[in-house]
Write a protein that binds this DNA or RNA. Structure first.
Lengths: 204, 204
DNA sequence: GGAAATGTGACAACCGCTGCCATTTCGCAT
DNA sequence: ATGCGAAATGGCAGCGGTTGTCACATTTCC
């Protein structure tokens, strides 16, 4: 926790972290619907009203974790050399992005598991992905020197590469996040890059 | 409305249709959050309690329209010749599926527009797509004679082809659903089929 | 130290949604 | 036609998520 910040900032960060942890723990133990906001705040000495000052909704406690990741993904893409072909650049960005997932394996797996069994959370997560897709499409359009509103190509590349990435993550999580994510991501994106009826994706 | 069915069935279908229409109209006029369930039932001489016997949630009135479409999509894929390559079969299925969208242009556009500006609805719609993806993956696995749980390929093809389709729909809807959807879908899926950094998608 | 900004708690209210039970309506056999 | 069982409905009470409001406490800054 940044010690330079004032007391106020530090306190806020602490409560936020406490709330997130308490919520995540109870959600996974008891289930999302079975855990009320009062249950969550009860473990943190905070009023229900304050909970909603930190999070827009109960779901946001879970999803909030993914909030900043979209920006990182776009930055990774923006950092690729300009002469790289668009999809190849996206693939490289996702390969690095996979490492971020790997680092936070526990959180990613916990949230994914939660999303798997809780429709509203799953829906929210998908919506978050859709926002990433927007960011990706915009950055790809910039890189391709085209208008993302009229030219469908950047959006298509964004959507398809993200789908390939998500599919890899899904498999990784289903396996308990044991192996390495990056190679799975790479394999999926290369398969798409080369045309799906041409290539054989390793079936392991 | 099927006249063979008893009075009961006909009545139910009628109420359901009325509720859907009233809801959709008010949602688009006044906004989703600004329209309460009481507003909806007020236009149909139905009690709020009964509304929730027809729909699981307020959102379901909007999304319900897409409920049966997933099954149709899977059937279209199942109807493709068995020797067709998997992605090519998916492409063909989506091309036909596009015609179903085109037939119901008004509904599709209205719901999409609503989804665009109403996060919870957008999320639900994405979740519905995710279910379609499951169905597609299963059917592709059957066709490829492989296990959808261990072999990532059918899921990858399902996810990617669906993403390409959805992107085409998005463009079509953004244009007011004026042109033909099927060619857009075909172009997107062919682009993916051939490898995204190789082909040029027509930028119109 | 004190004023101004900021975070918090308590209360009330709205709305989506559900369980429950009484009432009405329909389908069907007689 | 009639009456009986099944199915649909309405009304009510209640839970839980979410928001507005206002008074109070705490931190920041001068």
């Amino acid at each position: 926790m940044n010690p330079d910040a004032g007391l106020r900032e530090r306190k806020k960060a602490k409560t936020r972290a406490e709330l997130t942890e308490a919520a995540l723990r109870q959600f996974t133990e008891r289930g999302f619907d079975e855990t009320t906001v009062e249950d969550i705040v009860g473990a943190c000495d905070v009023s229900p009203r304050t909970f909603f000052r930190y999070f827009d909704s109960k779901e946001d406690v879970v999803i909030g974790f993914f909030d900043d990741l979209g920006a990182e993904l776009v930055e990774l893409l923006a950092g690729r050399p300009p002469d790289e072909a668009p999809f190849a650049a996206a693939r490289a960005a996702f390969e690095s992005f996979a490492d971020i997932y790997q680092e936070r394996r526990n959180r990613v797996c916990a949230v994914s598991q939660l999303a798997y069994e809780t429709p509203p959370i799953r829906a929210r997560l998908l919506d978050k992905h859709a926002r990433w897709e927007n960011g990706l499409a915009r950055e790809l359009a910039r890189r391709m020197q085209t208008d993302p509103e009229t030219d469908p190509r950047p959006r298509l590349i964004a959507a398809v590469s993200l789908a390939a990435f998500s599919t890899a993550v899904r498999g990784w999580v289903a396996d308990g996040g044991r192996g390495e994510l990056s190679p799975l991501v790479s394999a999926n994106l290369r398969a798409v890059e080369n045309g799906l009826d041409r290539t054989s994706v390793p079936s392991a």
